[in-house]
Computed example of a mutant assay.
Amino acid sequence: MHGPASPGWLLVALCAATGAYCLLRMRSGVEEQRRAAGGEALMGFGMAAMAVPPAAFTPPTWAWPGFAAVFGAAALQALWAARTGAHHLHHLVGTGAMVYMAAVMATAPAPAHAHGPGQGGSGIPLLTGVLLLYFTGYVLLSGVRLLPVAGAGGPAVAAAWSDRPEVARACRLSMGIGMLAMLLTM
């Protein structure tokens, strides 16, 4: 890395690329995939916007409550959708984490936005630790799900690029890694 802003820009690029692919996945012929892709695109672009290094752009004071409001609305939608599937619970945790990070950034003094972990605190707050554990487990499980299964060499079915489950899993994995990186800098 060439400087403290490099990891931030890499995270911005990862999250923006994931958000862009999720937008493209919204063209899927399967309604549930379109709906999930929309929420994931919001997460990807929101994470990219929140990860911009403060040396390049310091958001105005109203931006953090704005992020909290947008992701709070997304959390309510995920809560409503969680009645029908467990994957929506992950969306609920993710949007809740985004609300939490936006609230922390809104209440942090301006110089704290540029500091990394361990800068003037008494350790990791409990909620940050719980979210770190959750997303670590999610990333490990998502990574294992990407591994090829022995004996699954059945006939390949040609799927549309927007309906490829392995690519959707890879996007979710990259967003989980991005969330871990963001939580580590809290």
Score class of each variant (00 low, 15 high):
Met26Pro: 10
Arg27Ala: 15
Ser28Thr: 04
Ser28Tyr: 09
Val30Ser: 10
Glu31Ala: 11
Arg35Asn: 03
Ala36Cys: 08
Ala37Arg: 03
Ala37Phe: 03
Ala37Thr: 07
Gly39Arg: 04
Leu42Lys: 06
Leu42Tyr: 00
Met43His: 08
Met43Ala: 14
Met43Glu: 02
Gly44Gln: 03
Phe45Met: 00
Phe45Ile: 09
Gly46Val: 07
Met47Phe: 05
Met47Tyr: 05
Ala48Ser: 10
Met50Ile: 07
Met50Phe: 08
Ala51Glu: 01
Ala51Ile: 05
Val52Ser: 10
Val52His: 07
Pro53Phe: 06
Ala56Arg: 02
Phe57Lys: 07
Phe57Gly: 11
Phe57Pro: 13
Pro59His: 11
Pro60Trp: 04
Pro60Ala: 13
Thr61Val: 12
Trp62Phe: 13
Trp62Leu: 13
Trp62Pro: 15
Ala68Thr: 06
Ala69Asn: 14
Val70Trp: 03
Val70Gln: 00
Phe71Asn: 02
Gly72Met: 04
Ala73Phe: 06
Ala75Phe: 00
Leu76Ser: 04
Gln77Trp: 03
Ala78Arg: 02
Leu79Asn: 04
Leu79Arg: 01
Ala81Asp: 09
Ala81Ile: 05
Arg83Asn: 12
Thr84Tyr: 03
Ala86Gly: 09
Leu89Asp: 13
Leu89Pro: 05
Leu92Val: 07
Gly94His: 08
Gly94Glu: 00
Thr95Ile: 02
Thr95Trp: 01
Met98Leu: 13
Met98Phe: 06
Val99Lys: 00
Val99Glu: 00
Tyr100Val: 01
Ala103Ile: 08
Ala106His: 10
Ala106Gln: 01
Ala106Val: 08
Ala108Asp: 07
Ala108Met: 05
Pro109Gln: 05
Pro109Tyr: 05
Ala110Arg: 15
Ala114Tyr: 01
Ala114Glu: 06
Gly116Leu: 15
Gln119Leu: 15
Gln119Pro: 14
Gly120Thr: 10
Ser122Glu: 15
Gly123Ser: 14
Gly123Met: 15
Leu126Lys: 10
Leu127Pro: 15
Leu127Trp: 06
Thr128Ala: 12
Gly129Pro: 14
Val130Ile: 15
Leu132Trp: 01
Leu133Val: 13
Leu133Ser: 12
Phe135Ile: 06
Phe135Trp: 09
Thr136Tyr: 09
Gly137Leu: 15
Gly137Glu: 14
Gly137Lys: 12
Val139Phe: 12
Leu141Met: 15
Ser142Tyr: 05
Ser142Gln: 13
